[in-house]
Design a binder for these strands. Sequence first.
DNA 1: GATGAATGAGTGTTCATTCAT
DNA 2: TATGAATGAACACTCATTCAT
Lengths: 227, 227, 227, 227
Amino acid sequence: MSKNDTAKSLSNNQKRDPEKRKRDLLLAARHEFSEHGLSGARVDDIVNRAGVNKQLLYYYFGDKETIYEKVLEDAYAEIRDGEELLNLAALPALEAMEKYIRYNFNFIQENRHFVALLNDENLHHAQHLTNSAATIESHVQLRKLVGDVLDRGLAEGIFKRNVDPVSLYLTISSLSFFFFSNIHTMSKIFARNLSDESEIRKRSDEIVEIVLAYLTTPDDRTGLSGG
Amino acid sequence: MSKNDTAKSLSNNQKRDPEKRKRDLLLAARHEFSEHGLSGARVDDIVNRAGVNKQLLYYYFGDKETIYEKVLEDAYAEIRDGEELLNLAALPALEAMEKYIRYNFNFIQENRHFVALLNDENLHHAQHLTNSAATIESHVQLRKLVGDVLDRGLAEGIFKRNVDPVSLYLTISSLSFFFFSNIHTMSKIFARNLSDESEIRKRSDEIVEIVLAYLTTPDDRTGLSGG
Amino acid sequence: MSKNDTAKSLSNNQKRDPEKRKRDLLLAARHEFSEHGLSGARVDDIVNRAGVNKQLLYYYFGDKETIYEKVLEDAYAEIRDGEELLNLAALPALEAMEKYIRYNFNFIQENRHFVALLNDENLHHAQHLTNSAATIESHVQLRKLVGDVLDRGLAEGIFKRNVDPVSLYLTISSLSFFFFSNIHTMSKIFARNLSDESEIRKRSDEIVEIVLAYLTTPDDRTGLSGG
Amino acid sequence: MSKNDTAKSLSNNQKRDPEKRKRDLLLAARHEFSEHGLSGARVDDIVNRAGVNKQLLYYYFGDKETIYEKVLEDAYAEIRDGEELLNLAALPALEAMEKYIRYNFNFIQENRHFVALLNDENLHHAQHLTNSAATIESHVQLRKLVGDVLDRGLAEGIFKRNVDPVSLYLTISSLSFFFFSNIHTMSKIFARNLSDESEIRKRSDEIVEIVLAYLTTPDDRTGLSGG
DNA sequence: GATGAATGAGTGTTCATTCAT
DNA sequence: TATGAATGAACACTCATTCAT
């Protein structure tokens, strides 16, 4: 029995699968960072969660900030990946828009870590958000995705004119993101548990209504305010 | 007047004004916490900013978390204080609503620390948000403030039915808060500097439009989505 | 009503009785020092226990070490004061000796702080034990007290020869002091609660027996060991 | 052998011997704690004495209190280890007893830190004395050791009846321990340097005499006091 | 005498990171 | 690849003491 065999016998899977260990580290880091932020996260806790030796994190990622950047990048990639699968072009504009809004809301609901991660990154003035080609490209796609639905709605005569895709994306994201982002403080100051499933569903419907009401406002009613 | 007198009286004014020193500490703490979060903030930096001895912070506030709670409480008090001065009752519902939305937006713009503070507090599941009588009362008032305008708009026949004041407050806050909260990541991924004064003004108008479009949707058009 | 009257109304007793405050401080200090030792005691805790302003401790005693010395001095004075009242001369030697042993044991039992205080002072190589005239004189008296009983016992033909009063005092003190000094570790390692009243009584009798057995050993039996 | 080799191999021997470093830390801690007590001891001083990085103490022991507990445990183990080597069974009861008494006295004389350590631990109500299996077992052995000699002395007809082994251990320890524990205060109040080698030797003999006088008291003379 | 305010020097502990193999 | 050992810089917090009135 060779020395190699001995080593293999017990923990072969872990020791011989560097990619898995990297993924474990990234997943553990995602949890840590989304629970405590960049400065609140502890390298020790990440490696303990991942079940690997601390030095391995440094070996793979260099330092705490680099793994944080990677976690962030992955989070963005995931939400963009989901958008690509929506196949909005197959639906009428109104339905497509509603589908997109609900996707946006649901993604955040199911990926709460995304919220904390983005908030923390904004605290750091987005300095870790790498301008990787992939990131840039994915957002060009996003703008196009939303823009296409807007164009089709305008062509169908149901959407108002002059709606900027980025502004619309901001509106949709604001309504979804804020709900989950500020759910704890809002629940507390209004003494109402917004984390209840029924509250979440209700809010989701309201958000759809708000966005669609805005998009479908007849153009002659637009600008009712003196703003 | 001897040299001694001068030195003393000056020194006295600055050094023996505990209330001022407390305020200085709170202001410095507000800056630190909003720039770095609770865990990222450094007690040393707070006291240096405030120009006081470190132990004084502990003398007055006990520990880092307690001064954090006080900072948070003060931030809430300020936004609520501003709302009380709006005198919305003197305006027609539509104008009152617009005034409130703009107040909300402007307050956040001018009190950016508020954004970071609330995000950090949500990271901590709102555990530092003390349920002080003042805090509770102020939010009862807020609900009443928004509810009153809603009621009047309904009576005037211009607002839709069944709008919950808390939901509406969520909507308004979402749109304003998110814009500033996520301004750095959004600017970066869309390669567009949302911090520009013109972008801010534009967004402010859009938000007014979105909220009013929703509120003034004719009741028979409500529910256009299959929610 | 003068300003003076106002001040008096509430806390006259405390404010106008400096001697009482000094005693309160000393008593509080005795508790603190005997519970935590010199280094473990906290000035804040002493003044809180005494219910006085912290600066007052410094005003009266100068610093922490000085009040510690005063506490120590008072403790010694108390045990010596008790000895003076025993009136051993009125009793036959054997009874006088037993009375003294029991006094020594009981004093320690009833003044547990004395134990911790002396141990701590020995930790500091007795450097705070002031060589005040009173302290010296009191121990000259002590030596005489024990020596007198020894002499009488020898004259009565019941005590052995050549017993040094200081050595005898050491023996008596050892047996009594150690029991209370090491009561917690001894109870733990032998799994037997020596703090029980019955254990204490039993030990007290044993100690009397040990000392008297030694003192009444016939001189021809002395030196049975080859030591 | 290159310069590198020399430097490395030397450095390795010293630096990469974790067990040695642990021992160094424990030895340094023992000195610190016995000189200053738990609260008076400084972590910085311990690591400086041991010549290691401060964090290493935390790496190996977790915190100050844990290393204190370990020091205490080791101290007890040492005195018990010595007892095992006495081989008392090979001697007649009287000689065995004297040997044990002298071992007890000498151990304390040569391990003065033991005294301060135990006193401090009693100050803390023995709360750090871990009930480890080893500690418990060692004291069961101790009781047996003393009990055996007592039994043999009784069989030989030279020791008195009804002497409890734990009580006897208390007696022996009291006399030895107190002498060293209170040596500084006693020397001062009686103006007599008990630390002199001659005083120590004299006291050692006295202690043997006292204990043996007690043990060899004829049973019909026992109870001479009215206890 | 008495008090609240203020301070410098420490104090145990934590942290991200590097070393050495 | 992988790991246990080791480190310097920082960190929140404490402490005895002094200031100023």
